[in-house]
Amino acid sequence: MKSILVTVLFICSSMIFSQEFNKEITLENGKKFLLGKINLDGLNSEPYQAWFQQQHESYDVDETLIKVIKKPLKGHQIKLFLGTWCGDSKREVPRIIKILETANFPMKKLEIVALDRRKGLVKTSPTGEEQGLNIIKVPTIIFFKDGKEVNRIVESPIESLEEDTVQIVSGKPYTPNYATLSKTK
């Protein structure tokens, strides 16, 4: 009897704490966007697949810099905030995903959160993953090590995604776009 009760409690708590991935919102004008935690399946579904795959396939990764970041990158966790409605996100997100894949980054250490665009909810998520992280522009790619923010790339890289990532994971000085507005470190 005790084991049945434990099993029921475990299933109930799992259902409460699990979050739906790839939730889609449709606006009154028919436009759609993803909201909340998403994964690559969401980005590879219609209507997002068109821009995601085109940018992902056409981007030439700097293999020389991948060799530099491959090992130190694995010691980091990454939170990627984007808007599937945002032009900068449509350009940069497929590229950073391709870089991470090329570097064999453990994708379980990547959390992707799609933010809202609706009035009064702009740059928020249903479960508040952005809270306390000062997300002012998307995409924002935040690098964490041992649970602490190391640095971030905001909206677009300073040099290139690979070069900026080298600076961040190597612990070299790096100042992201909008640093006066962003909380970095």
Rank of each mutant, 00 (worst) to 15 (best):
Leu115Val: 12
Leu100Pro: 05
Glu111Ser: 14
Pro139Glu: 12
Ile168Arg: 00
Ser3Pro: 00
Thr64Met: 06
Phe33Asn: 03
Asp60Thr: 10
Lys148Val: 10
Lys2Asn: 10
Arg91His: 13
Ile69Cys: 00
Lys90Asn: 07
Val8Asp: 01
Thr180Asn: 07
Ile11Phe: 05
Glu24Ile: 15
Met15Pro: 00
Glu155Thr: 08
Val8Met: 08
Val8Glu: 04
Ile141Asn: 02
Lys172Gly: 03
Leu161Cys: 03
Ile4Met: 08
Leu65Phe: 08
Ile16Ser: 05
Ile168Trp: 00
His76Cys: 03
Gln54His: 09
Phe10Asp: 01
Ser156Gly: 12
Leu100Lys: 13
Val122Gly: 00
Val122Glu: 14
Lys145Val: 06
Ile141Asp: 08
Val166Asn: 02
Ser58His: 02
Glu162Ile: 08
Lys37Thr: 12
Gln55Met: 15
Pro94Lys: 09
Glu28His: 08
Thr26Met: 11
Phe33Tyr: 15
Lys67Gln: 14
Gln167Glu: 09
Pro126Gln: 10
Ala50Ile: 14
Arg118Glu: 15
Ser170Gly: 13
Ile142Asn: 03
Asp116Gly: 03
Leu133Ser: 05
Val122Asp: 10
His76Arg: 01
Leu27Ile: 03
Leu43Cys: 09
Thr180Gly: 09
Lys79Val: 13
Gly120Met: 06
Ile112Thr: 14
Leu80Arg: 08
Ile142Met: 14
Gly132Cys: 07
Ala103His: 12
Ile38Tyr: 09
Lys172Asn: 15
Gln53Ile: 09
Asn177Lys: 14
Asp62His: 12
Thr140Leu: 04
Lys145Thr: 10
Gly36Val: 10
Glu20Val: 13
Asn22Gly: 09
Leu115Asp: 06
Lys32Glu: 11
Thr26Cys: 07
Ile99Glu: 04
Pro47Asn: 12
Arg117Ala: 07
Val166Ala: 01
Lys67Val: 02
Glu162Arg: 02
Glu130Gln: 15
Lys145Arg: 15
Ile168Phe: 00
Pro139Leu: 12
Leu40Val: 11
Glu155Ser: 09
Ile4Lys: 07
Thr64Cys: 01
Glu111Asn: 11
Thr124Gly: 04
Arg91Cys: 06
Gly83Ser: 11
Leu80Cys: 06
Thr124Cys: 05
Lys123Val: 04
Leu43Asp: 05
Pro47Leu: 13
Ile153Arg: 01
Ser156Met: 05
